[in-house]
Amino acid sequence: MTFEAFAGQTLAGVSLGMVWFLIAAGLSIIFGTLKILNLAHGSLYMLGSFCCYQVTVSLAHVAGNFWIGVLVAPIVVALVGGVIEVFLLRPIYKAEMIYQYILTFALVLIIGEACKMIWGVGYHSVQVPWPFQGSIGVFGLSFPSYNFFLIAMGPLVFIGLRTLINKTDLGRNIRAVTENREMANALGTNVPRVYTGVFMLGAWLAGLAGSLWPPVSVVALGSDMAVVIDCFIIVVIGGLGSLAGAFVGAIILGLTTAFGLYLIPKLAVAFGFILMIIILLIRPYGLMGEPE
């Protein structure tokens, strides 16, 4: 493997990992607080992609249309998430796990089909936005600058979330509810509102990832399950409910996927799963998770 290929795969892997991190972080926070494994998280990501694409098309002649999409799409997805939490998830928190799985699976079907009805089955593309069309030279090699932007987004969101959870009132409430729901409720925390807030935050992150990824790839149906399965691997590697775990897991899986695709493209899909199985066997609660 040449140095050029090595650097290229590393860059691709980390930028993919950072986008995954945004989704996995939401998945992990929702699981940590609501104790629900949201199978439809990938669908929220896909919805974000389509919404952002829609904005770029509708405002084709407006300068900075992509950035308007990045602003609007996650908010739309967060609102959809809020509706889902209030009307569908609230009645089943006390039900057994299987019902929660199947309900969120039904949402995968509904959101997927809705996207198909609105945007059709074709591939859509989104232009790489200003000011990131160019390349940046590193060690005499040149790489697309948009990838560097994506890589910067990861730590930015990570620090933002850490600050939100550790320093703000909302974060204090989230931690209280995660720690002990009944006690927080008894002490006057509005638990249902925190649940809705956390779910909307997770949905917003998925929507943000969905808006940012299309310039590198395409907007198409089917990305929902592909993404959510990758994010499951990430949160399991890192430890369910751990933000730092999601960050580390995302980078590990991103690199594994990028190098796997380069070295043994045929089995690249299986690498992530094999990694997850190995980690589960040697560290049952993930790299950063804590035993329940």
């Binding site: 699981f31 494994l37 796990m97 799985y101 399965i229 499951f232 691997i233 399991v236 369910l240 045929k266 089995l267 899909v269 299986a270 799963f273 094999i274 997850m276 199985i277 589960l280 066997l281 049952p284």
Partner: peptide, 28 residues
């Protein structure tokens, strides 16, 4: 043998992982 070592969510995800591996093998 591997999956029953873990329970609940982890069991479910491990079974998903193995079935996807089987799918990959069959596919490739």
């Amino acid at each position: 043998w591997i999956c029953v070592r873990r329970s609940a969510v982890y069991f479910a995800l491990l079974t998903l992982a193995f079935s996807q591996i089987i799918w990959t093998v069959v596919f490739q």
